[in-house]
Design a protein around this nucleic acid. Structure first.
Lengths: 107, 107
DNA sequence: AGTCTACATGTAGGCTCTCTATATGTAGCC
DNA sequence: GGCTACATATAGAGAGCCTACATGTAGACT
């Protein structure tokens, strides 16, 4: 997977993965890997800053927790995040339609 | 259209548009706009450097021509470019499948 | 005790690409 | 003369994803 291809879609991926249950960073990475069938292996250096950015933007909220002696910062979707995710999904659909039209024009 | 979303897909778009007929930069921009139904309006500051990059990479070849007193640099797809385009199309398909799976998991 | 792996978070700096803004010039119309 | 369409090009900004590194706990194995 070309890293640049993910540009601008990472937000949607992250928000989508915490939609139904709050998760901490490490679990988010695993969830992305599982949901994608192993195709997505996003490095920590990408995920952690992105989560902080999304929190700063108000789309995520986080809390610290200690589980089994390890500290976790668990992120959950805010209402604004839920709205953002809906918008991202719509944008994704039209994006794929547009690019698809150019790549494979029905002459 | 969020500019970042195009990251990593611009090459495929440009190669695709000159697949069947050589075009010059300005015509490429118009072709992208038409093929996308108006959704894609790529600025010259994006297209011209990208075309040069693709030529440097060996995927495109260019020639100068003068038409109606105006100078055009016409780009055509090389064999390497044709192979690259095929790869980009495959990558695009798997990319959309992967992202789609994450955004809308069939629980 | 020491080593290794999995778990868990985080930052610094680099890299690349797209965009905005600007520059230059021709052709044709009013 | 001024406007629009045509046509190419570059400099610099901005943003985000990546590599590499830093730090630490828990548990298994030797």
């Amino acid at each position: 997977m070309n890293p640049d291809a993910l540009r601008g879609h990472m937000d949607a991926l992250l928000l989508s993965v915490v939609e139904h249950e709050p998760l901490h960073g490490y679990a988010i990475i695993e969830a992305l890997r599982e949901r994608s069938g192993g195709a997505l292996d996003v490095p920590t250096g990408t995920v952690y800053p992105a989560l902080r950015r999304l929190e700063r933007a108000g789309f995520l909220a986080s809390e610290w927790a200690t589980v089994g002696g390890r500290k976790r910062r668990t992120y959950r979707l805010t209402d604004a995040g839920r709205a953002e995710l809906a918008g991202e999904r719509t944008a994704w659909t039209s994006f794929t339609r547009v690019i698809g039209k150019v790549l494979d024009p029905q002459t």
